[in-house]
Amino acid sequence: MAATKENFQRVPFWAAGIVLVFFALIGLALFAPDATPWYVMGPVGSFVQKTIKTDPERVQQLPLRILGMHTLETVIAFFITLYKGISGAARQKWLLQTLVFGVFSLVPLVMFTPAKDRKIK
């Protein structure tokens, strides 16, 4: 199947926002845990601050675990695009998007119907 614009859907902005905020939170926890005003973030900030103090090894391992999960989701997305007949640039976009946004991209891919399988009304 040709890589057409119809064979790709972008992640919703709200999902991209959640992922980017989460990445920023992890970055602050790793690189500036003492300089970050965690009290401003309410219960989330107090939870992160408590986790940093009580279990710093888990915080340090978190980026590698996230990378591993997103890589596994990307492999799953590869096989889903193969099964659905999505190839070329559309497949590359799905895979890159799944690597960055994870499950927020994988679930729409599972529910996605390629352009050749859609019925024109």
Rank of each mutant, 00 (worst) to 15 (best):
G68F: 00
K5R: 09
T54S: 13
T4P: 02
T71A: 15
L106E: 01
A2P: 11
T81W: 00
M69V: 11
A90W: 04
G88N: 01
N7T: 03
I66Q: 01
T71I: 11
R58A: 14
Q9S: 08
T71V: 13
V44N: 11
L30E: 00
I18R: 03
W14R: 07
A115N: 04
L72G: 11
T36D: 04
Y83M: 09
Q61W: 14
A115S: 08
G85E: 02
R65C: 04
L106K: 02
Q97I: 03
L99A: 12
P56W: 06
R65K: 10
L20H: 15
E6D: 15
L67M: 13
P33N: 13
L96A: 14
I26L: 14
I66P: 00
V44G: 07
E73T: 06
M1Q: 08
P56Q: 10
I120N: 09
E6G: 08
V59R: 12
A32W: 11
I18D: 06
V19H: 05
M111Q: 15
A15W: 08
G45A: 08
F13G: 10
G27I: 09
Q9P: 01
W38S: 04
V19G: 07
K5I: 13
G27C: 08
R65L: 15
K119N: 08
P33E: 12
F23S: 09
K116A: 15
F23C: 07
F79S: 06
S46V: 09
V59T: 12
G17E: 07
V103M: 14
F112R: 03
K53Q: 13
Q49L: 04
L64W: 14
G88V: 06
T51I: 05
L67C: 11
T71L: 15
G42V: 05
Y39A: 15
V110I: 15
V48S: 02
T113R: 10
P33R: 14
Q97C: 13
D34W: 03
K116D: 09
Q49M: 04
Y83T: 07
Y39F: 10
L20Y: 09
F104N: 00
S87I: 03
V11A: 10
L96W: 11
A2I: 06
L96R: 08
K121W: 03
A32Q: 12
G27D: 01
F78Y: 13
Q49K: 12
A77F: 00
F78G: 01
M111V: 11
D55N: 15
V75K: 04
I52F: 01
I66N: 00
G17Q: 05
W94L: 05
G85H: 03
D34V: 05
G88E: 00
R10T: 07
P12C: 09
A90P: 02
V100M: 07
P63F: 12
F13H: 03
V40I: 12
L96P: 01
T54P: 02
L67Y: 09
S105M: 10
P56T: 09
V75G: 11
K116Q: 14
T4C: 11
P37K: 08
A77K: 00
Y83R: 08
I26V: 12
R58N: 12
L30R: 12
G42N: 06
D55K: 07
Q9G: 03
D34A: 10
T71K: 03
P33V: 15
F112D: 01
P37G: 07
E6A: 15
E57M: 07
V103S: 13
W94I: 03
